[in-house]
Design a protein around this nucleic acid. Structure first.
Lengths: 158, 158
DNA sequence: TATTGTTATACTCTATAACTATA
DNA sequence: TATAGTTATAGAGTATAACAATA
């Protein structure tokens, strides 16, 4: 079948390829972690809570760049699964501190495993050296574009 | 401020970087193209119609991998702007053939310009040689992952 | 009876703003 | 009066399935 690119004679630029492959990678990752009964935003939040435990929802809201109201549902879901818990701050009882449970820490291990499998599948076309080159270029783009390392920008409002 | 990556000691893999930068690129492109009063899905459809004019909505639905019902709204919007038109097939009056108007072809030129500006902005961290290397790696990933060249996978249902 | 395009409906995800409880 | 967290509401975007017109 002839394709759009061939018909238009307009080879896509790097930015279009990044958008297309990024959306593809996002969809494939969502499929994989659905096996752990987690959504991608829940997964990102779990990572942050494990990386920096004890933060309030306000602090996480600030770090992720997402409205506090969005965090409520994510935390509710993860707490209902027993992966993290809200601990009242005794000196200021308006605040919660979020901490991973033992099950949450175990889950992070599984998430890491799924992530590595996913990474390997997405980069199947490249050998190890090429993957390193790609990562190097992507890290530089991410830094120049002002992306927070380790935080997916879909948390951010425009 | 310390970041999640630093705190977790878990450098993101290439797939996460692709997802994050891809989402960022998508959002930035949507901002740019909004100046032309188009949405990203409308833009993708315009590209396809200009590249291969005269197709029916069924054929485009098949090519893009999207339900026919979704195409209706996109075509409606583009037709209302006078960028493309539905022409009845006289031998089988169930079918429409989609054709760009003169205004639509002029719009494609603007879209191309916006796309090149966007590409340049996203890749600002890289010099020309590095951009070529990046494109080469991305094209190979896209091909191996089964992505249709020139078609954004967000049209595709899971 | 099958197919093209359309409409009706519902679902997911998210943001905004109003609300409560604490300070 | 201000702040942390929650709830209520609404909007965008999409898919599924029912539908009308044509074959």
């Amino acid at each position: 079948m002839d394709t759009v690119r061939e018909a238009s004679g307009n080879p896509p630029g790097a930015a279009f390829l990044l958008a297309a492959i990024g959306a593809h990678a996002t969809a494939r990752f969502a499929e994989r972690i659905a096996a752990l009964e987690l959504s991608p935003p829940q997964t990102g939040l779990m990572r942050v809570v494990v990386a920096t435990p004890g933060r309030s929802q306000q602090e996480l809201s600030e770090l992720l760049g997402t409205p506090p109201s969005r965090l409520v549902g994510l935390v509710d879901g993860l707490a209902a699964k027993g992966l993290l818990e809200r601990r009242r701050n005794e000196t200021d009882r308006r605040l919660y501190a979020l901490h991973p449970t033992a099950a949450g820490i175990a889950m992070i291990e599984k998430i890491g495993l799924v992530g590595r499998e996913h990474d390997d599948a997405v980069c199947a076309a490249l050998d190890d050296g090429e993957r390193a080159v790609l990562r190097g270029l992507l890290v530089r783009i991410a830094a120049e574009q002002g992306l927070t390392p380790g935080v997916h920008p879909s948390y951010r409002r425009i």
